[in-house]
């Protein structure tokens, strides 16, 4: 369960998030949709304790990220990049992360297998392609077998097989009762997997609800999105 309550943030005097409020519930895939620079990544970074909000709270299972014990066993997160130092091998990277949360070394090889990187375990992260880097990032997120998944643009850089795999994986995770929150600017992609949709534009939540409700009378989610954000575009700050 993810609860974001009236989160605001200013960065170099610009208001980048304004009273952002939403929930992501267990057993459902929640899609966080918005154009580039709308505030998706900033919201996720605040949720994960990487950035600090000026006001408001962002909680995971009722607690701020920083108060979680062995956080990787509760939340798995995928941000941009692999999150691995280029000189370290994939296995060495996963092993230090595992050690940090008291997980056994064997988890490293298990998650490498889940994401299909078993054969590249001894390769240095700097030699990975974009798609492989993303898989390594996902492997890191899965180390603690978390009940909450937070993913920033998870299909970026994946090939068609990877995209399909990711879609199935996220649906299965939700079916097992996990909370899945993913951001994307790809509306078609989101319409395929999300149960609930939250649309953000210029730091404000424009609409949120079940996929069908958000799409409403519009033909597709994409049409709905443009109708909603175009209406917002003229609003003065």
């Amino acid at each position: 369960m993810i609860t974001i309550d009236r989160v605001s943030k200013t960065k170099s005097r610009t208001l980048i998030l304004h009273d952002v409020t939403f929930e992501a519930r267990p057993g459902r895939v929640t899609g966080f949709l918005g154009p580039n620079g709308a505030g998706k990544t900033s919201t996720l970074r605040i949720l994960l304790g990487l950035d600090r909000p000026q006001s408001g709270t962002a909680l995971i299972c009722g607690r701020p990220y920083g108060k979680l014990d062995r956080p990787l066993t509760t939340v798995g997160a995928l941000l941009d990049g692999s999150g691995a130092h280029r000189a370290r091998t994939a296995r060495a990277h996963l092993r230090w992360v595992a050690a940090s949360n008291g997980l056994p070394d064997s988890r490293a090889d298990e998650v490498l297998e889940v994401v299909g990187l078993t054969g590249d375990a001894r390769k240095r992260a700097g030699r990975f392609s974009l798609g492989m880097s993303r898989r390594l990032g996902l492997a890191t997120a899965l180390l603690g077998d978390p009940e909450v998944l937070v993913l920033d643009e998870p299909v970026n850089g994946l090939d068609p097989v990877g995209i399909r795999w990711m879609r199935t994986f996220l649906r299965d995770s939700a079916a097992q009762g996990r909370t899945v929150l993913l951001s994307s600017h790809l509306m078609g992609e989101l319409a395929e997997i999300a149960d609930d949709v939250i649309v953000i534009d210029k730091g404000r939540i424009v609409i949120q609800g079940r996929l069908a409700d958000v799409t409403g009378d519009h033909h597709t989610l994409e049409d709905a999105f443009f109708a909603l954000t175009a209406a917002e575009a003229d609003r003065p700050w």
């Binding site: 941009d80 990049g81 692999s82 691995a84 280029r86 992260a125 700097g126 030699r127 990975f128 392609s129 974009l130 880097s133 993303r134 970026n156 850089g157």
Partner: peptide, 9 residues
Amino acid sequence: TSTSQNAPG
């Protein structure tokens, strides 16, 4: 120096 976090290469 790297220009992108997505691909360390």
